[in-house]
Design a binder for these strands. Structure first.
Length: 882
RNA sequence: GCGGGGGUAGCAAAGCCUGGUCAAAUGCGCAGGACUUAAGAUCCUGUCCCUUAGUGGGUUCGAGGGUUCGAAUCCCUUCCCCCGCACCA
């Protein structure tokens, strides 16, 4: 019923807005305000999560319109990257899961068939989004819509321009980069293309080379180059067949699986033969000249991990220590490998760090603490490994063994500071090599076991550039954040962000203008396109042949002097609209998109075109549950409009939460709010223009309350605290109305008129359709969407409604507790309150339904049989009932 | 593991920065009442426990400590949840 009403209202007013071209924004004399929502990726239909983020932009846009700003709210659709291509391919292959997912999103079999072509996605999904946005009454300028990639040659040229600018400034460069690689398809494998191993990444190891006296070198892999001075021995698995190979001109011994990994990482590998691990047991190896490190057997070593060989640092590694102790006490084993028992037993940990409260043998300390006796106690050892590393990395300092041999003395330096120095020194000396291995097993969609590959010729955006980082910090400093609490996160990300591999071999997108074999990746083609919005409608009007770097230089940077009308017009448009005043997204984008957004603006545009505001919000929960496909609670937008109606959906989602908290979509709230809105609509129609003409004190009270609520709502709106704004502007205002109606009997005509107008205006950003309807029903000829935010007006109010409300509360509480049915009530008040209450005696009578008598406590002739009057206090009259 | 944000009554969510006026706003839910032939809507009242003629007391704000005359609010420790950790939109 109600939902139907809302649907009709939405249709009616959306048609009207369109007819009036209400949201088509063009430069004029007013101040501008530019809001934007990151263009969504066109491989899925919009759902409630997008809706929340979108609604924050939408409500802000509508609010700013009411405040008299010329608001630019454009929208485009993102098609860059591989997901669309991959999904289309899966359709072509008839993959069941993909087909099912599209069916669930409402596609017919016929439509799904068409979606085997990627271009069709770029055509179909924007249509779905457009329709969904319209149904929800989103007030964006539809003339400025576009899609990304070379499918849109205008935008394509813009992105080329962007990269040419970055190149000019030396902010893109070529380099190498480790990626997770599928050897079967010869392609990098992203997280979503994995059957197993989501979240696993390449991890950097150091390969340590131990000379054996002949030409051969045992090669171990470690994450801790900093413990180099504490090495006591090398472990090898006696039962594994190792490989001897020429690697970059040296003769290495590593496990068989490591060979393939080395090849992928651009080591020159030439396999010579196999040797069993046992062949090395008892040999002496050296890392630094003159060392005699014994090679010991360790059957726990996995040939798939690292190189299948490790070196041992028993002072700082509990695993190493416990392994060493186990061997030392296993005489059978020692005999088996013909090891000199005396020598082996003499191996002792070499202290290298000084850890506060522990000293130099952290490993022993932790083994004692957790009472670990054997290598088989894996759980405890894993726990120790983490705890120990955390502790020593942050708290320990190097001891005197680190005084010499490095580019600087490291004695007394924190491990966290020295690790990089040691790594770089050893690298420079050619003693170690860098090597990547996965943090865990990764299996691709093609069911191949993935490896790490070093991609050469990869182009990077150099976010590591120090000067650029500084500019990005500057851009952050001058920006307004909604809410400001995310600032720390931005600071951190700017500092942490490293060079970003910005090109791909596959997918949809724009070709890198100076290296056409590459496609620009999706997060890199979406960093400054808000500038393109300012001219998105105009540029469509000119021939593609006129669009080139010179034009963009002129329009966006004011370089050169193009006299053509269209160029001048676009330049003016850009100058008028830019910079972005508010860009809102989910908190997940802080770490990439939003920070890129800052960086790229800082690089390409002058300071006055840097972004002015960024909004960040949490992740929507549905009725208290995390939203997920498997739970089936990802409500599509289309369905929301049908089930709850546009206006109730809009106000409900914004009532779910604010700030960085995850907002909650509450279905029961959505149902309730619909009827409340209709109730207000009826009230407005009934009461507008009616009422008593004379003015009472209570009318002043209501006017002053309205003033206060307007002001406070305004404060919340400015900070995008929409939940609080709704609380204030609707629930609080409505409860004030209730009290007013109780107090005023017949409401004053002007007050009620003002109340209705203010209530409609305050609600307009949230529920514009029903607000238009009410606005027109009360006889207004204008559209409320482009009306003026209400003004406060000066009133003075002398009464004390709070006092009265409190008395009434007390009064009713006593009435409730009393066991008999009273007929008369007597109030005893302090003298100066008597006058005030005498005026309200009629109201009190009406509210409690009794005869009410009021006495001053100082009145000697008062009727007070139980001497209650002595209980009276200021603000708190005594009460007697009979 | 690292960085960021959170954990408040049946649910959702304010309060925390700037300690007391906080048994803690507001909305939902629930209970009672008014209105109504009835239902719905609306309005009033209540909704941690005990006690009570409007009161007084007890136990609460993830858990455990601490600072303070006094802590949901400040400090420390700990557990849990959300986001991100890179080539992926």
């Amino acid at each position: 019923m109600a939902e139907n009403t809302f649907k009709k209202l939405a249709d009616k007013w959306q048609a009207k807005w369109e007819e009036e071209k209400l949201f088509e924004a063009n430069p004029d004399k007013r101040k501008k305000f530019f809001v934007s929502f990151p263009y969504p990726y066109m491989n899925a239909v919009p759902h409630i999560g997008h809706f929340y983020t979108l609604m924050r932009v939408e409500a802000f846009a509508r609010y700013k319109r009411l405040r008299g700003f010329n608001v630019l709210f454009p929208q485009a659709w993102h098609c860059t990257g591989s997901p669309i291509v991959a999904a289309a391919k899966r359709i072509e292959e008839g993959e069941e899961k993909q087909v099912k997912s599209l069916k669930e999103q409402g596609f017919s079999v016929k439509e799904i068939k068409r979606l085997k072509r990627p271009e069709v996605w770029a055509e179909v999904f924007p249509g779905i989004w457009r329709k969904a946005c319209r149904e929800m009454g989103i007030s964006y300028d539809s003339r400025r819509e576009f899609i990304t990639t070379s499918l849109n040659p205008y935008y394509d040229k813009f992105i080329r321009w962007q990269f040419n600018k970055l190149k000019e400034k030396g902010l893109v460069s070529k380099g190498e980069h480790p990626v997770v690689w599928d050897p079967k398809t010869n392609m990098p494998v992203g997280d979503h293309d994995r059957v197993e191993g989501e979240g696993e990444t390449p991890q950097e190891f150091c390969l340590f080379k131990f000379s054996l006296g002949d030409n051969r070198k045992l090669v171990s892999a470690t994450l801790r180059p900093d413990t180099v001075m504490g090495i006591t021995n090398v472990f090898i698995n006696p039962d594994v067949e190792y490989v001897v190979a020429m690697v970059n001109g040296e003769e290495w011994v590593v496990s068989r699986p490591a060979i393939e990994k080395l090849r992928n990482q651009d080591f020159k590998v030439d396999v010579k033969g196999n040797v069993k691990g046992s062949a090395f047991i008892g040999k002496k190896a050296e890392f630094f000249k003159g060392q005699e490190l014994l090679v010991l057997p360790a059957s726990f070593l996995d040939e798939n991990y690292g190189t299948g060989i490790v070196h041992s640092v028993p002072s700082e590694s509990a695993d190493d220590l416990v392994a060493l102790r186990n061997i030392q006490s296993d005489e059978k084993l020692l005999k088996k490998y013909n090891l000199d028992i005396g020598i082996v037993k003499k191996i002792e940990p070499v202290e290298i760090f000084d850890t506060p409260g522990i000293g130099g043998r952290a490993a022993q300390h932790f083994l004692d603490k957790y009472n670990v006796k054997s290598q088989k106690e894996r759980d405890k050892l894993e726990k120790i490994k983490k705890e120990l590393y955390k502790l020593t990395f942050n708290k320990s300092v190097f001891n005197s063994l680190y005084k010499e041999g490095f580019s600087q003395s490291l004695e007394g330096i924190f491990v966290s500071k020295g690790q990089e120095i040691i790594k770089n020194d050893l690298l420079e000396q050619g003693k170690i090599h860098l090597f990547y291995d996965l943090t865990g097993r990764v299996v691709s969609r093609s069911l191949a076991e993935c490896v790490v590959k070093i991609v050469k010729d990869q182009w990077f955006v150099k976010y590591s550039d120090k000067d650029w980082k500084k500019k990005a910090y500057d851009a952050l400093k001058q920006i307004k954040l909604y809410p400001d609490i995310v600032r720390d996160q931005f600071e951190y990300v700017i500092g942490w962000l490293n060079d970003w591999a910005c090109v791909r071999e596959q997918g949809l997108g724009t070709r890198l203008p100076f290296d056409e074999k590459w496609l620009i990746e999706s997060l890199s083609d979406s960093t400054i396109y808000m500038a393109y919005y300012t001219i998105a409608n105009s540029i469509k009007e000119i021939p593609l042949s006129e669009v080139n770097d010179e034009l963009f230089d002129f329009v966006f940077l004011g370089r050169g002097n193009i006299k053509k009308d269209f160029a001048v017009k676009m330049r003016d448009e850009f100058e008028y609209w830019y910079p972005v005043d508010f860009r809102n997204s989910g908190k997940d984008l802080v770490q990439n998109h939003l920070t890129f957004f800052l960086f790229n603006h800082a690089a390409i545009f002058p300071v006055n075109k840097w972004p002015k505001g960024i909004g960040v919000n949490g992740w929507v929960r549905v009725d208290g549950q995390k939203m997920s496909k498997s739970k089936g609670n990802m409500i599509p937008l289309r369905e929301m409009a049908d089930v709850f109606g546009a206006d109730p959906s809009r106000i409900t989602i914004l009532s779910g939460g604010e700030g960085l908290d995850d907002p909650n979509w509450d279905s029961s709230f959505a149902k309730m709010i619909g009827s409340k809105l209709l109730g207000f609509s009826n009230f407005a129609e009934e009461h507008y223009g009616k009422g008593r003409p004379d003015r009472k004190e209570i009318d002043n009270w209501m006017d002053s309350e309205i003033n206060r609520i307007i002001k406070e709502t305004e404060g919340f709106m400015e900070e995008t605290f929409f939940r609080s704004a709704i609380q204030k502007s609707f629930f609080e205002l409505q409860s004030k109305l209730k009290w007013y109606l109780r107090r005023a009997d017949t409401p004053n005509k002007d007050v009620i008129k003002r109340f209705i107008e203010v209530q409609v205006l305050l609600l307009t950003p949230f529920t514009p359709h029903i607000c238009e309807e009410i606005w027109s029903k009360i006889g207004k000829k204008t559209l409320v969407s482009i009306e003026k935010w209400p003004e406060t007006k000066s009133v003075s109010f002398k009464g004390d409604e709070e006092f009265l409300e409190k008395i009434l509360d007390d009064f009713k509480a006593v009435l409730k507790l009393v066991k008999f049915k009273p007929k008369k009530a007597f109030l005893y008040v302090i003298p100066k309150e008597k006058e005030l209450l005498d005026e309200e005696i009629g109201f009190l009578k009406k509210e409690v339904g009794l005869e009410v008598n009021i006495f001053s406590v100082s009145d000697k002739d008062k009727y007070d049989p139980e001497n209650k009057s002595k209980k009276a206090k200021p603000g708190k009259p005594a009460i007697y009932l009979e």
